[in-house]
Design a protein around this nucleic acid. Sequence first.
DNA 1: TCTTCGTGTGAGACCGTTCCCACATAACAA
DNA 2: TTGTTATGTGGGAACGGTCTCACACGAAGA
Lengths: 348, 348
Amino acid sequence: MWERSHTKKWGCSMELTIKEIALRAGVSKSTVSRVISGKGYTSMEVRDRVLQLIEELQYKPNAVARAMVSQRTHNIGVLIYRQHHPIASHPFYGKILDAILMTAASLNYSVFVTTDHDMSLRSADFMMEKRVDGLILISRLQQNVIDYIANFGVPYVMVNGSTDVDGVMHIVNQDEEGGRKVAEYLTDLGHRQIFVIAGPQTHRSHNLRLKGFKKYMAGIGVPISASSILQASTSTFGEGYELMRSHWEQFRAGGFTSLFATNDMIALGAMKFMLEQSVRIPEQVAVVGFDDIDFAAMFSPSLTTVRVNTEEMGTQALSLLDKLIRQEANIENPKQLVPKLIVRQSTK
Amino acid sequence: MWERSHTKKWGCSMELTIKEIALRAGVSKSTVSRVISGKGYTSMEVRDRVLQLIEELQYKPNAVARAMVSQRTHNIGVLIYRQHHPIASHPFYGKILDAILMTAASLNYSVFVTTDHDMSLRSADFMMEKRVDGLILISRLQQNVIDYIANFGVPYVMVNGSTDVDGVMHIVNQDEEGGRKVAEYLTDLGHRQIFVIAGPQTHRSHNLRLKGFKKYMAGIGVPISASSILQASTSTFGEGYELMRSHWEQFRAGGFTSLFATNDMIALGAMKFMLEQSVRIPEQVAVVGFDDIDFAAMFSPSLTTVRVNTEEMGTQALSLLDKLIRQEANIENPKQLVPKLIVRQSTK
DNA sequence: TCTTCGTGTGAGACCGTTCCCACATAACAA
DNA sequence: TTGTTATGTGGGAACGGTCTCACACGAAGA
């Protein structure tokens, strides 16, 4: 059915080679190659004849063969690991992926996406075998994976990784500043009794958000006590809901007027539980999240949060990677992205 | 910095070839190839020696070169088009993508993901040049894109496409049956005045969901009048919200006790508006959506919906594509997936 | 007239594999 | 002895491009 096998007689355009074009145009393959690449001399008439044939027969140059000789595949790999689950569809990381895909097209890269759920080195291995020109590592990457990749000498860039690693290009948000903004905003609204749910301590961004927040609070003389900070073990909706449920008495007894969660998913989970307890948001409790995932604006009430510029993250990651691949001189570590407070119904 | 260029002296494992291994093992490259592939005869001692070297030097076979000779890249492409926006992160299509990525790994395919926002043929072209073994087309694909792809003779499978196309393998949900289930459920609850927001008529699934719903209602003698059906032009949250807002008077005057939207995003948008109008859900209005995206369960109140088995969709799509690629005999069109009603807070 | 260009072309090596074929050896049957 | 077979190995073509080099030609300069 799919005329594709080893029949040689190219029933479809995919099997059309430069040689065949050359034959039909009555020139050598070198000449055809020259016409296609635009390098070197070619006479007008030959050029026209060849281009005509290419158009007519729908010839597509074979990128595999090209990669073979040029030693550049123009393919890059995106590795996303997160809590043992594939997350192309993740509301936050998926956005970054989208941005990467967009930018990749304009820079003429094709993108392999792999989400290896067992966190082995297998997908990294795979990418190496495919000879990608570079890699983008999103979110939590184990050190051994990074070492492994570095060992192959393939350029790579991290995006919102769980830790900063020396000498590794890392695209991140100004998370500490974001935490500060939340604190400033909530205290400006008059809140003093603020409950906090902090995401996994294993992740850089959650730590910094919390740090910035605490620092500001301490700075204005309203330090956050350890007892009003809940430590989440995952940064999920379910975790937020569950933590709020299990600490409900403590929360009520504390007289808290607001809640800050270090990401939206946790915030929304906590909010859902509170709404089920008929808490009025924001009248009784104001809630602030972090990330500005799509769902934050859709929730009812919509969630005040700090927007992380995921689009810029993806774009920066790819253009940086491109520079590394092209071995540009003077490549600078990218500037951290500026977060922006987005005020919505959950606080006003 | 990245020792990768044309320096030949392979500073890193990526430039290690079978020839180098052969040299070091004191055998020919044919022999090394035999050891790696496991085909043909090789003596124990030679095999051990070669495998040892491969392990030691971290040799990775070059998939590009392999593809060159085998004429199989073991790469597939996923094309996602939707309303001119990239949607790897889309709550519904992203899930399908995730499933595809999972299955791909187990079938030894690498996956190129492209979301061409201008809906041109460019990304399809790109995939052809990269000589993918097959393609998966998700959601709305223009006929000309399909024709174009078919013309190259590359196997492809559609997933939840906007229309069925003759002779094209298409993975879909039993959407009509899903619509029927909603009608049955709502009427069993006693609802007779049901308001409907139908997604774009240009998309197969929305049409069938509506069809199944109307058919059942007519069947039990409670036909849905045209005036209680709103036509959405996009299947987004914003559209649901906006339609509900602009038809609020009509809705209130109609004495409707329930709302059915042909997908979750629209349902959630409409729900958000109603909640803002202090409508009590489900007491005053029961709401049912379709798809069971993650947000549906997270929303407050959580949304009753019909679950589309996106995981199965991705899995089926890939294993079907794999069969087409391997030119298996007797490939059957896959069975439509059975949808499942998920009852949540918005109706009880 | 003889160089020296600028222009246009084709031959063939090469990229890193796979795989077909030729060949070598040892064991065993006729 | 002479096949015949099973086992093990290496040489080299092929995959579809790119790129270097050699060469041919006409025009212009010495």
